[in-house]
Nucleic acid binder design. Structure first.
Lengths: 224, 224
DNA sequence: AATAAAATTTAGACAAATCTAAAAATATGT
DNA sequence: ACATATTTTTAGATTTGTCTAAATTTTATT
């Protein structure tokens, strides 16, 4: 059983950001990177780093950088779990579109009630992925990343199912909606332009030209 | 169309408390009363009173007392609307019991998203009352108080439908659950003891003795 | 390896929300 | 009406989270 520590909203936001910056490999995160990501000043990050280190949520060595402790990682996963479950709730139960959910979920993820989030999970029938295709960590912090590649990595005549988006900005998501590209669709790469890396693709018998910027922001589960 | 002003959580809690203390009649609320209710110090209330007066949410005259402005009243009703809708959501959609919802709704009421609360309202099919029988203000701040009396005011052999509770503490609500007294039940007053004002009542062919403390915390809609 | 550039931390300040202790204003009792 | 009690406000301090500007450490360049 994990003890639940009460963190402030600011502390939770730092933990979440550090988790996202860590990504796959284990490298130290710089004060500057966190400040950049959170739209704040490096000196503020230093101040917070001391508090989080005191609470044993991060490893922090002055001038060297920051990484999450195991406790910090679990905390981050709990917050991300809440964020993503709320996103599913907003889309599935309240008909929000996938470009509207982030902002509200940023608030809802800080609600403190274990029962609440477990019941939401149950109401949604234990979803595995959020509306952008990102995996939802389990209650005990397990986190199964899908085996996916970027559309830009698919070879010509390759096929795959669209399973996620890298960029989750409203403008990108609205672009996909407008062109009726949604998760679950099968994409077939017909051709690729060497000059600008743009692609000709087919979805549901509809053919498109998409720029490399689009292709590098769509996650695909490759088919054989 | 009303402008939405962004208030801090603390400001919202003060506004809500002042609204509840005002009640029906228009009298000035004292610094002490607010401090008492919010479990804080009178000096803190004075500090906040200045801020809220600056934002034109309250009328405040030093040493005299506090009352809500029209803007303050509308703000209070918007928060109470959110609180009560979330309570209905928790009970109807997530199977919370009525003694568990308050604490969580205290957090959820501060989520800032007009669309969110309107969609929740829609999902719940526009409920008029929360799980404790309190009316839910409409979007435009209309607030219809039910025509109700306390069970203790019912005469002997009087009948009425249980429509609300005055005390919403978990201990009282659990007591009612244990004795299978719920909103919607018809209560018949069989007898009353002059000495301690306790009552003998009948609900669904079950007879009870209840103390005056119970009778003064149950709201009844009197039948003919 | 010395110096310049970049990143990071420290020091000191500020706003929000709270507190304690003291001062001021209002209310009460005879 | 006057003294006393109560209520309310002020003054100054504290905590959290932030900032700017200066100092320090690390990294990069020649």
């Amino acid at each position: 059983m994990f003890k639940i520590f009460f963190l402030t909203r600011a502390e939770e936001n730092y933990i979440k950001t550090i988790f996202h910056l860590e990504g796959e490999d284990t490298h130290l995160i710089s004060t500057n990177a966190i400040a950049e990501e959170m739209d704040t000043k490096p000196s503020s990050v230093t101040d917070m780093a001391k508090k989080l280190a005191d609470k044993e949520l991060i490893h922090y060595v002055k001038y060297q950088g920051i990484s999450l402790t195991e406790k910090g990682r679990r905390t981050a996963l709990a917050i991300i779990r809440k964020h993503r479950l709320w996103e599913v709730f907003l889309v599935d139960k309240l008909d929000f579109s996938w470009d509207e959910v982030h902002e509200v979920a940023e608030q809802l993820e800080h609600i403190k009630s274990e029962k609440l989030i477990d019941k939401i999970d149950e109401l949604l029938e234990f979803p595995k992925y959020d509306p952008h295709g990102d995996p939802i960590p389990t209650k005990d912090g397990k986190f199964q990343e899908r085996d996916k590649i970027l559309l830009s990595e698919l070879p010509i005549s390759g096929k795959g199912v669209c399973v996620g988006v890298k960029d989750t900005s409203p403008s990108f998501l609205k672009f996909l909606d407008k062109n009726r590209i949604a998760l679950g669709h099968t994409i077939h790469v017909l051709d690729r332009e060497v000059f600008d890396e743009s692609m000709k693709i087919e979805i549901d018998d509809r053919q498109f030209h998409i720029s490399n910027q689009i292709a590098t922001n769509l996650y695909i589960k490759q088919l054989n």
